[in-house]
Amino acid sequence: MKTIILTLLFILAAPLVSAEYSRTYIESHPLQTVAVNGIDMAYRVVGEDPDRPKVVIIMGLGGSNVVWGDTLVKGLVEGGYELLMFDNRDVGGSTRFDDWGQPTIWLQLIKQKLGLPVNAPYTLSDMAADTVALMDRLGYQDAHIIGTSMGGMIAQVVAAEYPQHTRSLISIMSSTGARHLPWPTQRAEGNLRDLAEGDAAAERDAMMRARGFYPESMPRQLMAVFKSGDRSEDVASIQASTLVMHGVDDTLVPPPHGVHTAELIQGSEFVLLEEMGHNMPENVLPELISRMRGHMDKVEGKQAKAARADESVKVTQAPS
């Protein structure tokens, strides 16, 4: 049971934890705070330009906005996009839920397995609503929604529940939460157990905090994932143009999770990336960025063509 709990705690936080990404470029853009959806949300806008298409990126379990790293953020901005990045509720500069306390994870895990209600201070739908409320506040009519790991789950919820705000969806090393999907491998569980004991635990905690993660928030966000359960039906309703990417070496959220996501979303593209686990390695970032930009560029091209066609119809139908 202890191994399972540790695995679940780290399963959605693992991306980028051990990577030494620069965040100087990110932090050169001011962190601002605004009240939306009943909470305060901390955010940055990078590459701000009213004429640029908008992109919203959503980080995973316990991670603040700086976890994305300069390389990925620069890569998207250099592609001609305005980027909105923020701290999910309960991390970084956004409203924290420390007063709610910490869940008894093993008990909530049993409840989840039995199909009983899980205690959680908020849900993935709440976090998706935060995202959309922030977009509305900043005047984003719609945007390309990108999420990684738990952030990918939130992005899926945005695309399913707020299709009018979703220009396209990019889901990275994420999951639908379907019960039939495989658990982490024994090797991954063993690695996590080693990292959660003795000196390794203290080193892991310090490394996570330095990287921009908030370990004390992870159990509460994990409860949001538990409470949301299997989202397959909602994911299958997504109509936005979708790119699903997963690492071939992901032992925490194995590739079948990504495959299932892509299978449910009609017309989606699935990409399995070599040399990538449940992280975004520096050597894989160029391909990740290229595929993200290619997907969004394609959607932008289709949107522009549709707009031109619509304008042509209006001109043709105009009274003489």
Rank of each mutant, 00 (worst) to 15 (best):
E82I: 01
E82H: 02
E82C: 02
E82K: 00
L83N: 00
L83C: 02
L83E: 01
L84W: 05
L84P: 00
L84R: 03
L84T: 05
L84C: 05
M85G: 01
F86Y: 15
F86S: 04
D87Q: 03
D87M: 01
D87E: 03
D87R: 02
N88Y: 07
N88Q: 12
N88P: 06
R89I: 00
D90K: 04
D90E: 06
D90C: 08
D90Y: 02
D90Q: 05
D90S: 05
V91W: 01
V91E: 08
V91Q: 04
G92K: 11
G92L: 03
G92M: 11
G93C: 05
G93L: 01
T95K: 10
T95W: 13
R96Q: 08
R96H: 12
R96S: 03
R96M: 08
F97L: 15
F97C: 12
F97S: 10
F97K: 14
F97V: 05
D98N: 13
D98S: 13
D98W: 07
D99I: 08
D99N: 12
D99V: 09
D99G: 03
D99Q: 14
W100R: 07
W100L: 10
W100E: 03
W100S: 03
W100G: 10
G101Y: 03
Q102V: 05
Q102I: 03
Q102T: 13
Q102D: 13
P103S: 07
P103L: 02
P103Y: 04
T104M: 07
T104Q: 12
T104F: 11
T104C: 07
I105P: 02
I105K: 01
I105S: 02
I105N: 01
W106E: 14
W106P: 06
W106K: 13
W106N: 15
W106A: 15
L107Q: 10
L107R: 09
L107I: 05
Q108H: 10
Q108T: 09
Q108D: 14
L109T: 10
L109Q: 13
L109R: 09
I110Q: 12
I110S: 11
I110N: 07
I110H: 12
I110M: 14
K111Q: 11
K111C: 06
K113R: 15
K113W: 12
K113A: 15
K113P: 00
K113H: 15
L114P: 00
L114D: 01
L114F: 10
L114Q: 12
L114C: 02
G115E: 07
G115H: 12
G115W: 09
G115F: 14
G115I: 04
L116V: 05
L116Q: 13
L116Y: 07
P117R: 08
P117Q: 12
P117C: 13
P117G: 11
P117K: 12
P117D: 13
P117A: 14
V118H: 03
V118A: 06
N119K: 13
A120F: 04
A120M: 01
P121L: 11
P121D: 12
P121A: 11
P121R: 07
P121G: 07
Y122K: 09
Y122T: 06
Y122G: 04
T123A: 13
T123W: 11
T123I: 08
T123G: 06
L124G: 11
L124W: 14
L124K: 15
S125F: 09
D126V: 06
M127P: 08
M127L: 15
M127N: 08
M127A: 09
M127T: 14
A128K: 03
A128W: 10
